[in-house]
Design a protein around this nucleic acid. Sequence first.
RNA 1: GGCCCGUUCGUCUAUCGGUUAGGACAAAAGAUUUUCAUUCUUUAAAGAGGGGUUCGAUUCCCCUACGGGCUACCA
Length: 511
Amino acid sequence: MDRRVRVRFAPSPTGPLHIGGVRTALYNYLFAHKHGGDFLIRIEDTDQTRFVPGAEEYIIESLKWLGIEASEGIGFGNGKHAPYRQSERKPMYKDFAMQLIANGHAYYAFDTAEELDSMRDRLKASNVDAKYDAITRGTMKNSLTLSEDEVNRRLENGDAYVVRFKLPRKEEVKFEDEIRGWVSFNTNQMDDKVLYKSDGMPTYHLANVVDDYLMEISHVIRGEEWLPSAPLHVLLYRAFGWENMMPKFAHLPLLLKPEGNGKLSKRDGDRLGFPVFPINWIDPITQELSSGYREAGYLPKAVVNLLAFLGWNPGTQQELFSLEELVQAFSLDRVSKSGAKFDQNKAKWFNQQYVRQLADEALAPVLFEALGNIGTTDQFSHDFLLKVCSLVKEKISFTNEIWEYSKYFFIAPIEYDMQVVNKRWTDKTPKLLGDLIEDFEQLSSFTQETVEASYQKALAKNEVQGKDFLQLFRVILTGVAGGPPLFEIAALIGKTESLNRLRNALSNITK
RNA sequence: GGCCCGUUCGUCUAUCGGUUAGGACAAAAGAUUUUCAUUCUUUAAAGAGGGGUUCGAUUCCCCUACGGGCUACCA
């Protein structure tokens, strides 16, 4: 059956979206575009106790920053299947739960939390798997054990109830995962999952299956943590009689911690020194900040590129891909099966590649902002900023490093790299600097070439070797030992500033 | 504990029974750059272990080990 490709990213707004989730969204996006289909965003906020204010907005903003745009759903203009927020779809789920009760695939259960606990304790004590299943449900308070009158009495009385799925006994459930191939589970290992909660909300399982069906989802691409509940979902499609409309499943490998143990979690980021969130997040309750890629100086294109390669590869040697190129190259059967550890070095390398490709105009605003922070924006022209960006760009890996590497273009050094000074400052130096100052003053045109000519002249006059002095000259002008070509720096900051810095050095540096 | 998924250089991975097991990041060495960064060259680095199947297994099957996930009226 050939049907229109429709996929969804369905996060729950319980906090900031972490990069594993971003990657899931990305793969969904790539798959949809590859097949000319639709990519939609649905918010799964059925657990009202875990709702976190701002989380939904955060998710949308993150995806927009990365350019992972949905064609339909929350944050991207509703489509024909609105609403796309499950809390707003609440009224429709009950009918589906009732439908399952009517056809014998589900039942009411009235057990209290205490009764469930005592059942589990009892079974655990006798070393049996404690679950609400084909064996134990006969001992519990539900519409299978209670008389019809009693059930009706309780329902009319408004007693709290849940709807549980009546799992078939000892049945092998098989399905073909697009990434893992045939996967099979036996229902005797599963339990009668709650589908409809006592607060009138569906659980993930019901809402997910119902919405995927109603929204005509063709492929469910989600994290591997959902693999164990996939058979339940398959059974639900069957129980509803929707098997011919059941989406294909693709369970993605998990993103693992770099140190090795466990999946990457929300708390790992700042502890390990790299972000696990796309953008900064401030916890609304604790006010604790979790840093994001955006603020850490990553470029969205780099994040997309590096995330795409965590668990997928094109099978060629090409590593740098735009989003459009990824769409062209992407396929589910090149997604790997095993979890990938996040590699900070590789991430840095990807970013560096994109920083270099960045136009000076795109980098200048970052520099401008840094300048604003120290209050000296006015005195520098846009053209000057662009030239600084062009000179410094290849030295940095992250956009927010630009200030650190370029501040001497704007502020005369107050400190000098003393290692260089101690090594290179000799008795001849003051005289040499004096000659340089004299010569610079005579220059009517202060360019890279004229500066270098003056420099060579002064060296010759004082019988100093270039390699003995140049780095000291650099430190005198910039304060630091490394950087772009020195004569270009001098020409850019200009004659007056260069002279100032030479004179400063003469009076400041005492050996 | 039970169930499920996985396992190639330190890391991400290529290989769809026959390869000197390839690439990238990181590491090391050298060259270039008057510095730093870049760039270039080079080096080191892997099939978890054990059984099968086969003329031949990294590749297919089984067992073990290890890693991961799930095991809620959370998603």
